[in-house]
Nucleic acid binder design. Structure first.
Lengths: 229, 229, 229, 229
DNA sequence: GATGAATGAGGATTCATTCAT
DNA sequence: CATGAATGAATCCTCATTCAT
């Protein structure tokens, strides 16, 4: 942030670099905002902090986003863009068993979203949904719905192919959804405060969850729960 | 809510109303604060709103809680006090199968906590953990730990009695925990914005989850997932 | 403050004591107020503190004084009452030398006012004069004027009897006044923060001041200052 | 007031006004705060008033001083910085009689401090000492001590050179100090409410005081007070 | 009378937003 | 375009004052 002052008697190369930074600004601001919003919540995050973290001045932030609220919306929008197209396509062409497909879907989700900053969006939406109802609705439509459909398609495939037993689709979707949402939330909140001994390793957690879910879903000699009184 | 214990004395007729109101105040304020903090978050909730919702003036709130932050802490503390004692005891004496025991534990959790306003505390802690590190630690110790131990005891019982297969205890606990945390979060956030058709009925969700988990946990002819590549 | 509750099945003696306390209330409140106003200033003193120091409730204070400002005025008025009558009379009949008379006047002032809580009024008036112009005027008339006249009478006597040299009366009065005002102020403010080694003993300070003043005032072979360039 | 040093650079024309204002701000605020604190006391002065008097908004004040209390401390510090260095030096090299030296010291004090707004600091410290114990201690060390030593050096010189009679040094210092403190206090408090006829002219008051003190201090045919009973 | 719970106007402080440079 | 000084609405909190008991 101080360095820019030093570039006055500039050669062309530096000029170019500055140009590039200029174009990168909005993205840097969105990253900074995401980080802070996730960490401290919308209200408790000061725009000046966001600007500082992005290496610009407070005024500059308002050059790109007309208000703090717009910044928030932009953060959400920027982090939900059509990753589903790609994901859908991959899964459309998936050839293996549906169990593997589910395993692959969740693992991929973790690698591409869950483990990145983007997962913070989930925490953010959960925390701030009531304060931004329009965003919450938007998020439902743009993220939850496509995601749910993707999960639903997997489950349907399993049932259609006789791999999974028939279950209520609505709750089936939630069952697959739950570990993802939990992981994203936990990572950005209480997770940091759990004692070392119980601290969760995401990949292991996910693997265990998938295992349980698949045991619960798959046909074969599925055990009936021991009693039902 | 705990304060009501205090008003059972003799000389009831005398200066009754004022006294009774005084004793009720903290509880009313805590309830109001819980509602608003859960809904809007800590920072976005104005103390005056809390006071108004509790039916008192701004100043009165500060008669009982020295600051907004103390109010927040009190809200968290008031809603986690010794609910585990009772729960523990009941389960200590549980006689049926461990599957039933788990079913009973989760159902009870929903009835006594999940379905009440107290579940908002979970959302609150997730949303604000980073802004109140000491509270987060406190919550870990006072809520998460006892809860985890309770779950752990159930799982251990199942394994000891040959009802459940052996699994890594740490992740076993998380698997049972996840649906509860999810339900509490969801209910207070995105849940309200999901389209009617996919809206979740907590009891049904929980039943489905328990079913899956038990199928995954229980011994007997447990199906191995169809493929493991 | 709690004790009063215990006096319910009261005998006559206690009844009388309470009666006496009741009459003493205003005085106790004025004392408490004086102490705190002197110490912390008018604005920084809370009426609740005053009430507590006087051993009554906040409400009771307002039974005797209709507002904080009225309490302040009452404090000032209560501490300037006609001590001058007595003092005047004593000095009127003074028989010794005027030097002794001055010495006596200042010593007496210290014993009767300066060394008591009443001296705090001087600090108070100095500190708050601008915020209570009417009180300041009142104080001028009721305290400063009579006091000045008393001093003036002494000086006049000294000059009339050829004991003192002739000096401008106005400044003569201030010269006698200064040590008293200084002592009263100092005692209630910076005095407490001066290092042990330089801490002032009021009686010694006063004696030294009187000595200097008398050397400066008295006729005889008064030394002219060494140079006047 | 000290800050003006900073604005003597080259590139004056460029973005001048804003910059210059920024540099002037703290000084303007300190001046305004001094005026109001002296007049109304710390507690009774509203920060908004200070800001308005300095010609800025409430918020701007907090850009330069993190709290009202810090502003107060800054006011005190800003008005006592190294005035003694200069004063000391002048007196170190003083050539005339010690009586003249004392006369010069007090006259100079009046011209440079007593007659300026800075004298208000004395009133301020006296009024608020108990509310700012750390500042009071700071003031003792930074102002009273150096001042006392300066006075002490003068008195010692007078005694060493056989010009003054031997007196207890501690009280000698207070005797010289008293008129200065009195003048500063009086001017900012009761002075304004004394009737025209007795209103004090500082220079004349000081001259009279010095005269009396010197008569009292100087050797030569010093008159013993007429009687000592 | 006495109490202390309740009130709410008033004041300190924060921070999103503007705008001159 | 970028800056950061300035603004003032918004909010927490205090405390003199009231009033039901």
């Amino acid at each position: 942030m101080v360095f820019s002052k030093l570039l006055c008697n500039a050669q062309d190369g530096l000029q170019a670099k500055r140009e590039r930074r200029k174009e990168a600004r909005p993205g840097e601001l969105l990253d900074a905002a995401l980080t802070l919003f996730v960490d401290k919540g919308f209200a408790a995050t000061r725009v000046e902090e966001v600007a500082k973290l992005a290496g610009v001045s407070k005024g500059t932030l308002f050059l790109y986003f007309s208000s703090k609220e717009e910044l928030f919306k932009a953060v959400v929008r920027a982090n939900i863009s059509g990753r589903f197209a790609e994901w859908n396509e991959e899964l459309e062409n998936f050839e293996g068993s549906t169990a593997d497909m589910l395993r692959y879907a969740l693992t991929t989700w973790w690698e591409r979203l869950g483990s990145t900053q983007a997962s913070g969006i989930i925490k953010l939406m959960m925390s701030e949904a009531h304060n931004f109802p329009d965003l919450a609705t938007f998020y439902q439509q743009e993220v939850m719905q496509p995601g749910n459909q993707l999960i639903q398609r997997i489950l349907q495939r399993g049932m259609d192919r006789g791999e999974f037993r028939a279950i209520n689709m609505k709750y089936g979707v939630y069952i697959v959804l739950t570990p993802m949402l939990f992981l994203a939330m936990w990572k950005h909140s209480m997770g940091a405060y759990s004692p070392e001994s119980t601290r969760l390793v995401p990949e292991e957690y996910l693997a265990t969850q998938i295992d349980i879910i698949l045991r619960g879903l798959c046909l074969g000699d599925a055990p009936t729960p021991l009693s039902s009184t």
